[in-house]
Amino acid sequence: MSVFVSHTSIDCHDAYALSEWWRRILDYGTDPEDPNLPGHEECAIFDPDTGHTLLFLEVPDAELPAKRIHFDVRPRERTQEQEIRWLEEQGATLVADHRGQYGPGTGWLTMADPEGNQFCVLKSLAERAHVPSPDPQAPQ
């Protein structure tokens, strides 16, 4: 027997604000029968196509626990560069640029959401199809 992932939980200071930020970024939905509202200590969003669910949980601690989970996001419609610019317009900040690390056209960019949670921006599937990876272990 095995288990499956029900949802991904994210500790934060403002569950509503952070869930709304990620909802816009990922184009996720909310449950109309259990809407997320300002002041809610738990806010869930989900992918309407796959059902993947993110649950944002407020914690009272001034310091959030060590960040052990992060997202790797891939553009659905834009290029990696267009996605990076759009994310910056939405309030994401640059942490580290790993583009070109495994040769021209490879790599990713590490960014942070408004509460400092890091995530990586990969190439779109269309871009990835046009770049041969010199290292099969290299993320694209």
Results as ranks from 00 to 15, higher is better:
residue 7 H to Y: 14
residue 96 A to Y: 13
residue 12 C to M: 10
residue 60 P to M: 12
residue 112 A to H: 07
residue 6 S to F: 11
residue 4 F to C: 13
residue 13 H to A: 15
residue 100 G to L: 04
residue 42 E to W: 14
residue 127 E to Q: 09
residue 15 A to C: 09
residue 94 L to K: 13
residue 102 Y to S: 10
residue 14 D to P: 10
residue 97 D to I: 02
residue 70 H to L: 10
residue 110 T to Y: 05
residue 10 I to A: 03
residue 47 D to I: 06
residue 19 S to I: 08
residue 86 W to F: 08
residue 22 W to D: 06
residue 74 R to W: 01
residue 93 T to Q: 14
residue 33 E to L: 12
residue 106 T to N: 00
residue 41 E to Q: 12
residue 116 G to Q: 05
residue 2 S to F: 13
residue 70 H to Y: 09
residue 38 P to W: 10
residue 80 Q to S: 07
residue 16 Y to H: 15
residue 30 T to R: 15
residue 92 A to V: 09
residue 57 L to V: 15
residue 56 F to Q: 03
residue 12 C to K: 02
residue 111 M to G: 05
residue 14 D to H: 11
residue 128 R to E: 11
residue 30 T to G: 14
residue 100 G to D: 01
residue 118 Q to S: 11
residue 47 D to M: 08
residue 119 F to L: 01
residue 128 R to D: 03
residue 125 L to F: 05
residue 82 Q to E: 15
residue 15 A to E: 08
residue 99 R to K: 09
residue 43 C to Q: 10
residue 124 S to E: 01
residue 89 E to Y: 02
residue 1 M to K: 10
residue 84 I to Y: 03
residue 116 G to P: 02
residue 115 E to C: 04
residue 72 D to F: 04
residue 112 A to Y: 07
residue 123 K to T: 01
residue 7 H to V: 10
residue 106 T to V: 03
residue 36 N to G: 11
residue 48 P to E: 04
residue 21 W to L: 06
residue 63 E to N: 11
residue 89 E to C: 00
residue 56 F to W: 04
residue 15 A to S: 14
residue 105 G to Q: 04
residue 140 Q to P: 01
residue 18 L to A: 04
residue 111 M to Q: 08
residue 25 I to W: 02
residue 131 V to F: 00
residue 112 A to N: 07
residue 109 L to G: 02
residue 109 L to M: 15
residue 40 H to G: 09
residue 2 S to R: 13
residue 18 L to V: 04
residue 18 L to W: 00
residue 133 S to Y: 00
residue 50 T to W: 03
residue 68 R to H: 10
residue 54 L to K: 02
residue 91 G to H: 09
residue 12 C to T: 11
residue 78 R to Y: 01
residue 126 A to E: 05
residue 77 E to G: 08
residue 100 G to T: 04
residue 26 L to P: 01
residue 46 F to I: 05
residue 4 F to P: 05
residue 97 D to R: 04
residue 74 R to P: 00
residue 140 Q to M: 13
residue 94 L to N: 14
residue 65 P to Q: 09
residue 37 L to V: 15
residue 48 P to L: 07
residue 39 G to C: 09
residue 40 H to N: 15
